[in-house]
Design a protein around this nucleic acid. Structure first.
Length: 571
RNA sequence: CGGAGCGUAGCUCAGCCUGGCUAGAGCACUUGCUUUGGGAGCAAGACGUCGCAGGUUCGAAUCCUGUCGCUCCGACCA
């Protein structure tokens, strides 16, 4: 491709709405343009990079035995109601009506469609296992689109769905995808690693996310350098011991605490109750039903765990107006010792199990109880792991201190089980003629997000530093004179023809611009290899090869193509 | 949805508080000349419903009301 024949609108300054490096560079390097919040046009260069990522994904999915299909992005409301997700995923579903007032969903994912297909087309164990995938546009009614392609209303996703006869088969399918994902991200030039993950409204019981470490990510990953344990903070547990029991008096004791409504205030003079000897009492509304939640004073409730443990679809903290009539006191004086309505369940964090000598609110403004025993004084409906892990806690597997890292989620694999196949009747007959639901898995990769993650991970002060696998063009030939009959331009044309014939993606910067301008542009866009041809060095029979991330190489004019091919092969 | 902020040329922004003649700068763009190994110089030029609607006023980019869009923080997040 010749630079003058494509469209690469680079910007010296970055538009104000870009906040993070990768978003700025996507705009500045002329890869994308914004149409509206979370909605972007891919320009020629951006589309080429996107296609590279897609191509890698297709090759690895095919290699792993999956088949490509293409499913509708417009889906009837009914199948979403059948799976139950019309309600549970309601917050992010794009819902539309056609002119006949029929309801449709713009697809955020395709479990319903593929499972309907399997229900109709697959009837025998002889047809299994199968894994279908597609690459296409997905929609999500993001409340707040952010960071360019990272969190958009419309994006490209690769989604795959496996069907097996048995749980073991499903695990095998899962692992094939898990391995394919590792290959895909490595080929994209990304440092991505798998972590244990929550399954959210997709459902299922086993799941990993593929994370790219980045401070601008929207996830926190807990990991242990000693043993390799890694989990999303929403899922992670640690090896902290339970609260140590002590010798205590025979009964709880009420004491006045006027104006004290925080853990911190109670920890100070004159009360001096350490946070780890306090019970934090929270009231939440789980699917419109109030519950009391107890965690230790120095712990934070993890709302994702709360949803996962209770199966709730929507959780939110109760408001003060809801709490007062329920427990008789305002937040800050709440507890679960007395005055707990019998229909309100009490869920307590495991770490409080067996704890005593604790202090908690008395459900009376301005009063607390001390000398509280969880066992003796509180009727706990159910114990759960509900707390959020903190940096430095002992690893749940090996007891070494864990670390926490921000990260971008680029892929997610789920073992779904039979949740969808049961609801949508994807049944098969086994050898004995007995009917079973297929055991499913689903596997997503955010393609556009992956592209941006590559840029977020690979850039410097001058611009993007494309890994060779995802670069829109691998080589940029930069003649410093573009006069058609000049030796410089003739050689540039020759290199262009030779490299193109060898299957290398080459762009020839044939713009009649000053050298500095062209150099800056090629570095901003980030082509992995630049071949510079100038009159002065050519007079000595030399040209310059500049890897974007390495030292300048001076090559003889007749060796340059071989040298470039060598660099491409080595990458 | 709660909080904060911003909408003026393709981009970055000034002007608004304290209303006043013809709405500005830099970059980008067009033409010419010069320049030619790290985002050139000079000259000339083109580009604006000042987000939109209404109001106040002799007069509104500027003040008021409404509305739409965008950004950030929070909530949310397959």
């Amino acid at each position: 491709m010749r630079w003058t024949q494509t469209f690469i609108p680079t910007l010296k300054e970055s538009p104000t709405d870009a906040e993070i490096a990768s978003h700025k560079l996507l705009l500045r390097a002329g890869l994308i343009r914004k149409l509206g919040a979370g909605v972007y046009t891919f320009l020629p260069l951006g589309l080429r990079a996107l296609r590279k990522v897609e191509q890698i994904i297709r090759e690895e999915m095919d290699r792993a035995g999956a088949m490509e299909v293409l499913m509708p992005a417009i889906q009837p409301k009914e199948i979403w109601e059948q799976s139950g997700r019309y309600e549970t995923a309601s917050g992010v579903l794009f819902k539309v009506k056609d002119s006949a007032q029929r309801d449709w969903v713009l697809s955020p994912t395709a479990e319903e469609v593929i499972t309907s297909l399997a229900a109709n087309e697959i009837s025998s164990y002889r047809q299994l296992p199968k894994n279908f995938y597609q690459v296409g546009v997905k929609f999500r009614d993001e409340i707040r689109p952010r960071f360019g392609l990272m969190r958009a209303k419309e994006f490209i996703m690769k989604d795959a769905y496996s069907f097996d006869t048995t749980d073991e088969g499903a695990m095998a399918s899962y692992h094939k995808m898990y391995e394919a994902y590792q290959r895909i991200f490595a080929r994209c030039g990304l440092k991505a690693f798998p972590v244990e993950a929550d399954t959210g409204v997709i459902g299922g019981n086993y799941s990993h996310e593929f994370m790219v470490p980045a401070e601008t990510g929207e996830n926190d990953v807990v990991y242990c350098e000693a043993c390799g344990y890694a989990a999303n903070l929403e899922k992670a547990t640690s090896g902290l011991p339970k609260t140590a029991p002590r010798d205590i008096g025979p009964a709880v004791e009420k004491f006045p605490t006027p104006g004290v409504v925080t853990i911190e205030a109670l920890a100070k003079e004159p009360y001096k109750v350490a946070a780890n000897r306090q019970i934090k009492t929270l009231v939440y509304i789980l699917d419109s039903r109030p519950v009391i939640i107890l965690v230790r004073g120095d712990d934070q409730l993890n709302e994702t765990k709360l949803m996962a443990r209770t199966g709730a679809v929507a959780v939110r903290p109760a408001t003060a107006d809801e709490i007062v009539p329920l427990l008789g006191a305002k937040p800050g004086s709440l507890g679960a010792v007395v005055n707990v309505p019998s229909e309100v369940p009490v869920y307590a964090d495991d770490r409080l199990q067996g704890a005593n000598d604790m202090t908690t609110g008395a459900n009376e403004d301005g009063f607390h109880f001390r000398n509280v025993s969880l066992e003796r004084d509180i009727k706990v409906t159910q114990w759960f792991d509900l707390r959020t892990v903190k940096v430095g806690e002992p690893c749940v597997k090996c007891n070494q201190p864990v670390k926490i890292q921000r990260a971008i989620e680029v892929g997610h694999v789920f073992k779904l089980g039979t949740k969808y196949s049961e609801k949508l009747n994807a049944l098969y007959l086994d050898e004995a003629g007995k009917q079973h639901p297929a055991v499913m898995g689903c596997y997503g990769i955010g393609v556009t997000r992956t592209l941006q993650a590559v840029i977020e991970q690979s850039n410097d002060k001058d611009g993007i530093v494309w890994p060779i696998g995802t670069a829109p063009y691998t080589v940029c030939i930069t003649p410093l004179s573009v006069k058609p009959d000049s030796d410089v331009m003739k050689l540039a044309e020759q290199y262009y023809a030779e490299l193109t014939a060898k299957g290398v993606d080459v762009i020839l910067d044939d713009r009649d611009e000053r050298p500095g301008f062209k150099f800056k542009d090629s570095e901003l866009v980030g082509f992995p290899i630049r071949v510079g041809i100038g009159e002065k060095s050519l007079a000595k029979g030399e040209v310059e090869i500049k890897p974007r991330s390495g030292q300048l190489i001076v090559a003889k004019r007749d060796d340059a193509v071989a040298k470039v091919l060598e660099l491409v092969a080595a990458a």
